Lab assay of single mutants.
Amino acid sequence: TTYKLILNGKTLKGETTTEAVDAETAERVFKEYAKKNGVDGEWTYDDATKTFTVTE
C-alpha cells in the first residue's frame, strides 16, 4: 500500500511517499524521515487517503 507524508515544517515543506504493509509501518518510516530532516510537530493521519501530515 502506498502512504503519503505531507511536511508542513517551518523551513521545509513538501511531500513524499512510501510503500508499507500497514499504517503503523509507514508512520515509523515517515517519523524517521521527518526527524532526519529536522521537522518535529503535530502528526495527523487520514485513513481514507492514507496520508500523514506533520505540522510545525
Rank of each mutant, 00 (worst) to 15 (best):
Thr1Trp: 13
Thr1Ile: 11
Thr2Glu: 08
Thr2Lys: 10
Thr2Val: 12
Thr2Leu: 11
Thr2Ile: 15
Thr2Phe: 14
Tyr3Arg: 00
Tyr3Ala: 00
Tyr3Pro: 00
Tyr3His: 03
Lys4Leu: 09
Lys4Ser: 07
Lys4Gly: 04
Lys4His: 15
Lys4Cys: 05
Leu5Ser: 01
Leu5Val: 03
Leu5Ala: 03
Leu5Gly: 01
Leu5Thr: 01
Leu5Trp: 03
Leu5Cys: 06
Ile6Thr: 05
Ile6Met: 06
Ile6His: 05
Ile6Phe: 08
Leu7Gly: 02
Leu7Ile: 15
Leu7Met: 14
Leu7Asp: 02
Leu7Lys: 01
Asn8Met: 13
Asn8Arg: 13
Gly9Lys: 04
Gly9Leu: 14
Gly9Tyr: 06
Lys10Gly: 05
Lys10Val: 13
Thr11Arg: 11
Thr11Ile: 10
Thr11Ala: 14
Thr11His: 13
Leu12Ile: 13
Leu12Arg: 12
Leu12Asn: 07
Leu12Pro: 04
Leu12Gln: 11
Leu12Gly: 07
Lys13Ile: 12
Lys13Leu: 07
Lys13Gln: 11
Gly14Ile: 15
Gly14Asn: 08
Gly14Ala: 15
Gly14Leu: 12
Gly14Arg: 14
Glu15Tyr: 12
Glu15Asp: 07
Glu15Lys: 08
Thr16Lys: 07
Thr16Trp: 15
Thr16Val: 14
Thr17Glu: 07
Thr17Val: 10
Thr18Ile: 14
Thr18Leu: 13
Glu19Trp: 15
Glu19Tyr: 13
Glu19Pro: 05
Ala20Phe: 04
Ala20Asp: 03
Ala20His: 03
Ala20Glu: 05
Ala20Tyr: 03
Val21Lys: 15
Val21Phe: 11
Val21Asn: 13
Val21Thr: 12
Asp22Thr: 06
Asp22Ser: 09
Asp22Lys: 04
Ala23Cys: 08
Ala23Ile: 10
Ala23Asn: 07
Ala23Trp: 14
Ala23Gln: 12
Ala23His: 15
Ala23Val: 14
Glu24Thr: 11
Glu24His: 10
Glu24Arg: 11
Thr25Gln: 14
Thr25Tyr: 08
Thr25Gly: 08
Ala26Trp: 01
Ala26Phe: 01
Ala26His: 00
Ala26Asp: 00
Ala26Leu: 01
Ala26Pro: 01
Glu27Phe: 15
Glu27Ala: 14
Arg28Tyr: 07
Arg28Val: 10
Arg28Gln: 09
Arg28Met: 11
Val29Asp: 05
Val29Gln: 09
Val29Ser: 07
Phe30Met: 03
Lys31Arg: 14
Glu32Val: 08
Tyr33Asn: 02
Tyr33His: 05
Tyr33Glu: 03
Ala34Leu: 07
Ala34Ile: 06
Lys35His: 12
Lys35Asn: 11
Lys35Gly: 07
Lys35Leu: 13
Lys35Ile: 10
Lys36Ile: 14
Lys36Leu: 12
Lys36His: 15
Lys36Met: 14
Lys36Ser: 12
Lys36Glu: 11
Lys36Val: 13
Asn37Leu: 15
Asn37Cys: 07
Asn37Gly: 05
Gly38His: 10
Gly38Ile: 04
Gly38Cys: 06
Gly38Trp: 06
Val39Lys: 02
Val39Pro: 02
Val39Ala: 03
Val39Gly: 03
Val39Asn: 03
Val39Leu: 11
Asp40Val: 14
Asp40His: 14
Asp40Lys: 11
Asp40Leu: 12
Gly41Ser: 02
Gly41Ile: 01
Gly41Met: 02
Gly41Thr: 02
Gly41Ala: 02
Gly41Glu: 01
Glu42Cys: 08
Glu42Val: 15
Glu42Pro: 05
Glu42Asp: 08
Glu42Trp: 08
Glu42Thr: 15
Trp43Gly: 00
Trp43Ser: 01
Trp43Thr: 01
Trp43Gln: 01
Thr44Met: 10
Thr44Gln: 12
Thr44Trp: 10
Tyr45Gly: 00
Tyr45Ser: 01
Tyr45Gln: 01
Asp46Met: 04
Asp46Leu: 04
Asp47Pro: 13
Asp47Lys: 09
Asp47Tyr: 08
Asp47Gln: 11
Asp47His: 10
Asp47Gly: 10
Ala48Tyr: 09
Thr49Ser: 13
Thr49His: 07
Thr49Ala: 10
Thr49Pro: 02
Thr49Val: 06
Thr49Gly: 05
Thr49Gln: 07
Lys50Leu: 09
Lys50Ile: 02
Lys50Arg: 15
Lys50Glu: 03
Thr51Lys: 03
Thr51Arg: 03
Thr51Asn: 02
Thr51Pro: 00
Thr51Ala: 04
Phe52Leu: 01
Phe52Asn: 00
Phe52Met: 02
Phe52Glu: 00
Phe52Thr: 01
Thr53Cys: 06
Thr53Asp: 02
Thr53Val: 10
Thr53Gln: 06
Val54Leu: 11
Val54Tyr: 02
Thr55Leu: 06
Glu56Ser: 08
Glu56Ala: 08
Glu56Asp: 08
Glu56Arg: 03
Glu56Gln: 14
